[in-house]
Every structure is written in structure tokens, then in C-alpha cells.
Design a protein around this nucleic acid. Structure first.
Lengths: 192, 192
DNA sequence: GGCAGACGATAACATTTGTTATCAAATGAA
DNA sequence: TTCATTTGATAACAAATGTTATCGTCTGCC
């Protein structure tokens, strides 16, 4: 799992082995809850195989905020960093193979590597990138119609449309399942 | 303007004076464009007095993404950091007193202070905070009705409701000016 | 003072989107 | 296989929101 990244990190073999051995491999079925709402999340997950959905409960309704696929890392980020109760549920969609690491181990590693500017800069860059991604998604809710958001999703994140059940996509786009059906139906008729 | 922050920064008087002298004071009327769409923004602004709106053009329509008031710093953040053409317009709403600093000076200062862990941590914290703020605003578009968003705005950012013309608030909430009028009207009638 | 433009309320109508209910197809478990 | 569950399409109706137009008020400017 981690060998593919070995050459990207300027670490000794010893340190590399020490760090990668902090990760624990698990296999879980679909619809496994990895982090519950209200729990203080002490785990960070990396997806080897499968697909994860982050959602929260709003007046009894499922609202999906993000999807994650192979090679992405997932946590209830605010909970993981600030030790707040998680506002969101993290749950598998497909049967998945995951690696998790505890917050303690992450903190230890971060403390050790912070002297390596290359890694520090990369982490800061990741933070900015995540900020920009949120901005982009946020803007689309103000400026685009649901139909346009769906078309952008097909264009920019085809994995989601291909692998995720449609009612989750609807809750991600902020529309009802019925309306997403209508949107798809209209698009098909327009193209004929 | 900067004296009120003097004791928050662990710097020598010499460095403090050197850094604060990088800022330039300007007074501008209402509706002054500070950063145009498509421009690579090389300035960061701090508001001494007044109020600023960040917006972008979407098919001829004004869409407001943020408001800023006294003591806040404003830039077309992605443009400022990554030197992209700015996707947004930054514009005063009220006659304002501003201080601006060039990107060159910011880079110089950041390079010098990065050895001070207190400042580095504070900067990283600010980045996280901004990420979380975006998340919150973004969630509200998925989970709240326009009426609820307007009520939250009154609750959490009363300055905006008090100081900003209503059609800008409508474009910030993602509704038409007519509909925001209706929302206000319904709230008034409900309370009587 | 008078005028133009900005701002906001309201009405009438059009369009979009949600809700509820029903049905059909696919899927998974016993 | 068979049955229950999940998933998705569609119809009919209700509610929310946008669009266009009109009017009144306020403000800044000459």
C-alpha cells in the first residue's frame, strides 16, 4: 500500500518503516460506520480499496458533504484536529480495505518531521488546496442550478456519478431524489 | 492603526517599525474597485474604517461571496497567494480608510518571521479557521432554507444586516432581491 | 428646491423544486 | 428459487423561488 509513495518522502528507511508500521489494515463491509456523530474522532483513514461517504443528519435527513475513493485520506477533520465531537458521520459505501492511524501517532510523526521544510511546505500546501476546494464547491451552490452542478459533477468527478448510489448524489447536490431523477431525464431527452 | 496590536507580536521595536512601515494608508469613496476581475492581485488590504464586498460576475449577475469590516484583512486570496488572475472583484461599499501592503513585502516578512514558532502556529491556525468558516457557510447552503440563512445572518453577523444594502445581502444569501423582501415581510407578520 | 439614481416593497405570473405515492427493476439474503 | 430491501423512475399536486413590472422613498448632487 505505501511502497508507491516511498520515493516521495525524504526519510531514512528506518524512519519510513517506523512511520508506516503505525498504520493498521482493516477490511470492512459496505455501510460500516467508521466515525459516529458526536464521537471525538481519534483515527485517520486511508482508503486502499473502496469508497467512503461523509454525511450529517439534518432534521432526520441525510446530507452528504463529501465522497472519498482509493488513495485518499479521510477523517472528521475538525474533530480530529481540535478534538471536538464530530458533527459528521463517516461511513463506507462499498466493501472497503482501509488503513487507519491513531491521532497520537500522527501527532508524534508531525512533531518529528516538522524540521523537514519540504514536508512542512507540502502540508501547508495541502491545507490551502483543501480551502480552495471548499471555496469552489461552495461557489457552485450560489452560482449554479442543480442541473449545472450535476453536469459539473459528471465532468469533474466522474467517479462519484459512476460508483455512488443516486440518492447519495442527490443529497450531495442538495436536491431531492425525485428532482435528480427529473434532471437526468431532461438531459437524456435533450440529447435525443 | 497598528499600535493596538503591538503587544501581540514578539518582535523588536526595530522590526516592528520596519514591518508596519510597509503599510500604506489610503482613503477611498464608496464603490471603489480595489481588485478587478482578471487582475493578478498584488495587494493585501486591512480595513481601518469602512466595509468591503467581494463578489463575482456570473452571467451578468452580481454574486457576493464575502463581506469585510473594520480590522479585517482582505485580498483575493487565491490570486494573492498563487498569482492567478482574480476570479472575484473586491470593492468598497462605504467610504473607507484602508491600509495596503504589497505581496513582495508580505513575502519578505513571512520569510523573516517563519523562525518564530508562535507566529507560525498562529498563521497555520488562521488557515484552519478560514477553512472551517468556509465549511460552515457551505453547509448552510445545503441544509438551511433562505429564511433560516437570513435568521442565522442576523444572529451571527448582525453587522452585515445593519450596514450592507439589501440587494447585496440577497446576492450573498443566494436569493433574488424580491424573495429577500418576501422573507423579511413574512418574518415581520409572524412576529405580530 | 428639484432631479436622477439607488434602494426596497409589492403584485402577478412563470418556473423550479419538494412531497407523497406508486410502480418496476435490481440486488442480496435465506 | 423466493422474498424483502434497495434503488430509481414517474405522476400529481403543493410549496418555494424567480422574473418582470410598478410604485414610493430616500439620498446625493446640481
Amino acid at each position: 500500500m505505501f511502497d508507491q509513495f516511498r520515493n516521495k518522502f525524504p526519510l531514512t528507511d528506518e524512519k519510513w518503516n517506523e512511520y508506516t508500521s503505525c498504520f493498521n489494515r482493516i477490511e470492512v463491509p459496505a455501510k460500516t460506520v467508521l466515525i459516529e456523530e458526536g464521537e471525538v474522532s481519534k483515527k485517520l483513514f486511508i482508503i486502499e480499496k473502496g469508497c467512503i461517504r461523509v454525511w450529517f443528519n439534518n432534521n432526520g435527513k441525510d446530507l452528504t458533504s463529501q465522497f472519498f475513493f482509493e488513495n485518499q485520506s479521510v477523517a472528521s477533520i475538525e474533530s480530529f484536529i481540535k478534538k471536538f465531537p464530530s458533527p459528521v458521520v463517516v461511513e463506507t459505501i462499498e466493501p472497503s480495505v482501509l488503513w487507519w492511524i491513531s491521532k497520537n501517532d500522527v501527532d508524534t510523526i508531525l512533531e518529528e518531521i516538522k524540521e523537514i521544510p519540504e514536508l512542512r511546505d507540502r502540508l501547508i500546501n495541502m491545507l490551502f488546496q483543501r480551502t480552495f476546494d471548499y471555496m469552489k464547491h461552495f461557489f457552485s451552490f450560489i452560482k449554479d442550478s442543480p442541473t449545472q452542478r450535476y453536469l459539473s459533477l459528471i465532468e469533474e468527478k466522474p467517479q462519484i456519478v459512476q460508483r455512488v448510489p443516486q440518492h447519495y448524489i442527490a443529497s450531495y447536490l442538495g436536491v431531492s431524489t425525485v428532482h435528480l431523477s427529473r434532471i437526468k431525464s431532461k438531459l437524456v431527452h435533450k440529447n435525443n
